[in-house]
Design a protein around this nucleic acid. Structure first.
Length: 484
RNA sequence: GGCCCCAUCGUCUAGCCCGGCCUAGGACACCAGGUUUUCAUCCUGGCGACAGGGGUUCGAAUCCCCUUGGGGUCACCA
């Protein structure tokens, strides 16, 4: 079995595209087939090299490796559509010769006018009889003379075109609804539906798994293959990913590029899992699963028919699940680039830097959703920070100065660091002034971390070290005195 | 508007193909408790859906029809 993902390098990899690629990949892996990547780069004006690089990077980041395509080659190449034009033109000429294609000299704006008129009449534009019935020899003569024109398909009338779709069942189109679509543009370059139909067949693609927006393209592609006597693949049109507004996911609703999620520090496993769960399910209970598990259970028939709304909140939950499940040393590795970016860890970290980072990562693992969140949370462990509003308030509360003073004194007496029984110590200090332990813990945390949340205080004391911890307490005391 | 597709908790979904086991299951979110020195994690409980109407049948979320609603697509882009 052979499947393909065919992105056009006109932008970054979209969540929708990523999921289509993922389904194709899962299907190939499930059945021991081949996952082919074909680059549809026939739109010269919009193609960019960066887009291609970015798309390939995103696929790799998600763990979707391809068996044939750019950078890996294969027996059914070339894998850039632009390099397959010889074959496309050959088919074009054959179509013209056999009469199922014809040259159309009607100017673009006139075709548009016809279409609008048809629509205004609540109908469907199909073709312009004038150009469709033009004598072929006359057409060739005008073409040879350099008259601008496109090539259209002479779409047959009244034929039922039945798509056998693994997710939708049978979908039937009447060929009378299909217009005489443009097969080659004025510059001679074949259009998508023509090139795609040909390439899929030539690449021996057996299953076309793609977004539902392509469902309406299918009759055109079927016609191409039928005229050419090429085999027809099986289909699976997967539902769209929708935004919160219920419409096809777009930039308006939020980040749509895989790279955006990567940059924000989502674990790739989480995005993979989440995307797989959009329109697919293994069973009635399984929510968290690995690529291997997906592969073991993947079936086209289990793909949902209706569109799925992308829920960033659930994605975040899942990201947290994966992050928490990551072993500490691995977590430290993953988080490193963000810490370096924030300037908290040097570009060339020492062994001590890395060891400390691992401890920091361990201390925060239960509190993080994304890798990218660590720098701001853990900054206080690396630099002096100003207390936030709530911490400042806790520090300025009445009686706090005395309690902190007592605690500081008690701490200074200890040689052991961090003090093993911090809670006991805190209790003592509090009791000494008839206060509750919380009255000490809270300002201590505020003085040390600048916030009211975070890892256990013993851990913080340890990570900060004796000198820094005591210094921060003293500083808080001094500031408190000035404010009070 | 034409054509095509779709329709279970707010969201992702199981169940539907092969009617009874469904007083419709799970997850996210939300709400209420509990654990915890904070935050978070974790645990327990709760809230909450078969779009509507007709059939078929002893029996329908499951089959059929209609209505309604939503979406996709109508490029010399892919």
């Amino acid at each position: 079995m052979r499947v393909r993902f065919a992105p056009s390098p006109t932008g970054r990899l979209h969540l929708g595209g990523a999921r289509t690629a993922l389904f194709n990949w899962a299907f190939a892996r499930r059945h021991g087939g081949r996952f082919v990547l074909r680059v549809e780069d026939t739109d010269r004006a919009r193609n960019t090299e960066e887009s291609l690089t970015s798309i390939l990077d995103s696929l790799r980041w998600l763990g979707l490796d391809w068996d044939e395509g750019p950078e890996v080659g294969g027996e059914h190449g070339p894998y850039f559509q632009s390099e397959r034009q010889g074959r496309h033109r050959e088919a074009l000429e054959r179509g013209l010769r056999e009469g199922w294609l014809y040259r159309c000299f009607v100017p673009l704006d006139e075709v548009r006018a016809q279409r609008e008129a048809a629509r205004a009449a609540k109908g469907n534009w199909r073709f312009d009889p004038g150009s469709r019935e033009l004598d072929p020899r006359e057409a060739e003569r005008r073409a040879a003379a350099g008259e601008p024109h496109v090539v259209r398909m002479r779409v047959p009338e009244g034929e039922r075109l039945v798509i056998h779709d693994h997710v939708r069942g049978e979908v039937t189109f009447d060929s009378s609804e299909v217009e005489d679509w443009v097969v080659a543009r004025a510059d001679g370059v074949p259009t998508y539906n023509f090139a795609c139909a040909l390439d899929d067949a030539d690449m021996a693609v057996t299953h076309v798994i793609r977004g539902e927006e392509h469902l309406v393209n299918t009759p055109k592609q079927m016609l191409v293959r039928r005229f050419l006597g090429l085999p027809e693949p099986e289909y699976a049109h997967v539902p769209l990913i929708l935004g919160a507004d219920g419409r096809k996911l777009s930039k308006r609703t939020g980040d749509t590029a895989v790279e955006d999620y990567r940059a924000r520090g989502y674990p790739p496993e989480a995005l993979f899992n989440f995307l797989a769960l959009l329109g697919f399910s293994i069973d009635d209970k399984t929510t968290l699963f690995s690529p291997d598990e997906l592969v073991r259970h993947f079936e086209l028939g289990r793909i949902q028919k209706g569109g799925a709304v992308f829920d960033p909140v659930k994605l975040d939950w899942m990201a947290g699940e994966y992050l928490r499940a990551t072993p500490t040393d691995e977590l430290a590795r993953r988080v490193l680039p963000w810490m370096q970016e924030a300037g908290l860890v040097p570009d060339e970290p020492s062994a001590a830097d890395l060891e400390r980072l691992e401890r920091v990562a361990g201390a925060f693992r239960e509190r993080l959703t994304l890798y990218g969140e660590l720098p701001e949370r853990a900054r206080f462990l690396y630099e002096e920070v100003e207390p936030d509003a709530k911490a400042a308030q806790a520090l300025a509360a009445p009686g706090v100065a005395e309690l902190l003073q007592d605690l500081l004194a008690a701490l200074e007496e200890r040689s052991e660091w961090p003090p093993a029984d911090l809670p006991g110590l805190v209790r003592e200090v509090a009791a000494g002034r008839g206060a509750k332990p919380g009255a000490v813990m809270k300002p201590l945390r505020a003085a040390l971390t600048g916030t009211l949340g975070g890892p256990e205080l013993v851990e913080v004391l340890d990570l900060l070290g004796r000198e820094r911890s005591l210094a921060r307490l003293r500083r808080a005391l001094a500031t408190g005195a000035r404010n009070g």
